Amino acid sequence: MSVHKQEIKRITTHQLREMKNRGEKIAMLTAYDYSMARIIDGAGIDVVLVGDSASNVMAGHETTLPITLDQMIYHAASVVRAVKRALVIVDLPFGTYQGSSGEALRSAIRIMKEAGAHAVKLEGGSEIKESVDRILSAGIPVMGHLGLTPQSIYKFGTYTVRAKEEAEAKKLLDDAKMLDDCGCFGIVLEKIPAALAKKVSQSIQIPTIGIGAGPDADGQVLVMQDMLGITKEFKPRFLRRYADLDSEVTKAVKNYVTDVKSKDFPNQDEKY
Rank of each mutant, 00 (worst) to 15 (best):
E127T: 14
I128T: 09
E130Q: 12
V132A: 11
D133H: 15
D133K: 15
R134F: 10
R134C: 14
A138Q: 11
G139L: 12
G139S: 07
I140G: 06
P141Q: 07
P141I: 04
V142E: 05
M143G: 03
M143T: 02
G144V: 03
H145K: 12
H145P: 04
L146F: 01
G147W: 05
T149E: 10
T149M: 14
P150G: 13
S152D: 13
S152C: 10
K155D: 09
K155M: 09
F156A: 12
F156K: 13
G157A: 10
T158S: 15
Y159T: 13
T160I: 11
V161Y: 15
R162F: 11
K164D: 01
E166F: 12
E166D: 13
K170Q: 15
L173W: 11
D174A: 13
D174I: 07
A176W: 07
K177E: 07
M178Q: 06
D180G: 05
D180T: 11
C182T: 11
C184H: 04
C184L: 03
C184I: 04
C184K: 02
G186D: 02
I187Y: 06
L189H: 10
K191E: 13
A195K: 15
A195R: 12
K198S: 13
K199H: 06
K199L: 08
V200S: 03
S201W: 06
S201K: 08
Q202G: 02
S203Q: 08
S203K: 07
S203L: 02
S203V: 08
I204F: 00
I204L: 03
Q205R: 15
Q205E: 14
I206M: 03
I209V: 10
G210E: 00
I211Y: 14
A213F: 09
G214R: 10
G214H: 06
P215W: 08
D216R: 13
A217T: 15
G219L: 05
V221P: 11
